[in-house]
Design a protein around this nucleic acid. Structure first.
Lengths: 336, 336
DNA sequence: TTCAGTTGCGTAAACGTTTAAGTAATCTTA
DNA sequence: TAAGATTACTTAAACGTTTACGCAACTGAA
């Protein structure tokens, strides 16, 4: 009645469990005849190994845990896809964890991952707090950071150089002839997607001899509606500008919305460049010119690194700064 | 050096492992004094139970597996979020599986889920092939279908009534005064998102005394670019129409794109209604009027049902037809 | 013929839990 | 005060694997 175990197979094939185990793993130590017998018994009983029992003795579960601030965001799910792809290819399963950006939930999840004896963890898009690091350290499993990093601990990460990418975006607008360039930025307290992008923007201006004008930048949230309002304010109160760098695609789209509402045409009256290249960037009209982050590939890389660390117990693996690229669609136009 | 086990705790507290286990589960059978001793030992050693060992004896892993055709789609990730939310609340972990719509991968994953001894499975957005059902049956774990169903096997599902929702969308256009209504449909072979939506469209026309005109419907893929082309052809070749029902948001957006390219204004020259209400439906301009599927809630419901089946070993749980609703944004206008 | 080496297995411990069954001491109750 | 009940434990088996070790039978060389 119960699913057949290795013992049942052994009995049916009239050998010991050790022998069954050996043929199943094709190690040496049995004749061809016993091999046949075992295989037949396996077949007839429909035997499937029990990974839990195996995990108990091997101290390996072939499972990794992945933490996201929001699994359902386009951003997270692209990364997840990459992680899953490689994991499955290498024989690992992935447990997804939605932290909802809450420390308590995150801690609880780390607890669960520890109890479930995952072989490794990938931690994405959030700052790695000390308390998180402590439990991970106690777990003695490898971690990889994606789209985030830690300056306090040396943990391998994979991310793009936000500062450089933002520089690229801004510089691109400048090369297109724009000089009055506004920016929609995330909070400068945000060490990942906030401050570095702002810094890239400012540096690009400086390097091109354009004076930084504080009143051209709106600092707020990454969310669409907030950005729409911020853009509306910018349009009303700021000195005039011909181009905008938005620190995320969602911001860019909020800005486009505000621009439309003021009767501005994009890109004719205003050029806009975004950041991320999420799936909807090509869905809006006009399709958004933006900085592409290769999220799925980043997921793949993280997965590969993590599994390398797990399998080889290899010493520290290197971090990767993956290169962004700028995808030209239809929201930026040269200034005549 | 190795993580402390229950034996270490027992030794430290100078009791047997059975006692430790009992206080940890707070069952009866020990004095307050031993309780203290045990707790203190747990504390000092930083003991964490090993869920793998626990799973082996309990034959319960507190883990469910979820299969998606494409984890990274907005559609899937919304469902995933709901599933994860309830699962985590009830003490279950979720393993995500990306089938890539391939039978082989799906089978391989089912195998893995079986070996990993998951307690239940949720299967989403694909038809449940016989071979899938067979292995799930052998696994003897509950399954829930989301956004799909099986007429062959009676498996609980949660989905919206596609036919009715499509009827609703079409009828809405009719109530707005439109009579020449085109449709962008998925393949009629598609028993979930194809045929039923087409049928709903046709029925709504019929019930309102509008003759069905084959040349007004384009049957193709759900993908944006294909839809854009299909719409372009419709615009060029079909009799004129004032409204369009697209069988998905992505199709609707492809159609909008084609319309823009022909210089049509939406909704002034052409009304469009979509289906799904994915996140980007509100991001496009003008924001898309569409049929809302409560995906996250559907995920929650599926998770709840599944866990009920697992915990109570309860007899067949009922399926749920969840109600869609129509969200009015800015792509549909009354015909004067 | 003998001895070392090889082949083909089986035995049993171990992994970290849970839990049924057993036991000794204490407490009731008549 | 003795029998039964209760309390506070311990012992040990079980869950389904993997794997170190042991051992008998056979092989080949000297």
């Amino acid at each position: 009645m119960n699913p057949p175990t290795i013992k049942d197979v052994a009995k049916a094939a009239d050998v010991s469990v050790a022998t069954v185990s050996r043929v199943l793993h094709n190690l040496a130590g049995y004749s061809d005849k016993t091999r046949q017998k075992v295989m037949q018994a396996v077949e007839e009983l429909g035997y499937q190994p029990n990974a839990i029992a195996r995990g108990l003795v091997n101290k390996r579960t072939q499972t990794i845990g992945v933490l996201f601030p929001d699994v359902s965001s386009s951003f997270s799910s692209d990364i997840l896809r990459g992680i899953e792809e490689i994991a499955q290819e290498k024989g690992f399963s992935v447990i997804v964890c939605n932290t909802a950006e809450e420390g308590k939930r995150t801690m609880k999840y780390l607890q669960v991952l520890r109890e479930k004896q995952v072989d490794g963890i990938v931690f994405t898009s959030e700052v790695l707090k000390d308390e998180y690091f402590q439990v991970i350290k106690e777990m003695r499993v490898p971690v990889i950071l994606v789209n985030t990093m830690s300056q306090k601990y040396t943990i391998p990460y994979v991310k793009v150089d936000d500062r450089q990418a933002a520089y690229h975006a801004t510089d691109y607008l400048i090369q297109k002839g724009h000089r009055e360039i506004a920016m929609l930025s995330g909070s400068l307290k945000d060490q990942i997607a906030g401050y570095p992008r702002f810094e890239g923007y400012r540096q690009a201006l400086a390097d091109n001899g354009i004076e930084y004008d504080e009143s051209l930048v709106a600092i707020g949230e990454f969310e669409l509606e907030a950005s729409r309002l911020a853009m509306r304010r910018l349009l009303a109160e700021a000195p005039s500008f011909t181009a905008l760098f938005a620190a995320s695609d969602e911001m860019a789209i909020g800005a486009m919305r505000a621009a439309f509402e003021q009767g501005l045409r994009i890109p004719d009256d205003l050029s806009i460049i975004g950041y991320d290249d999420l799936k909807f960037a090509r869905m809006v009209y006009p399709p958004l010119t933006t900085i592409h982050q290769p999220l799925t590939m980043m997921g793949r890389m993280a997965s590969e690194k993590l599994i390398a660390l797990i399998e080889e117990g290899s010493t520290q693996v290197a971090s990767s700064i993956v290169s962004h690229h700028l995808v030209e669609r239809q929201t930026v136009k040269s200034k005549p």
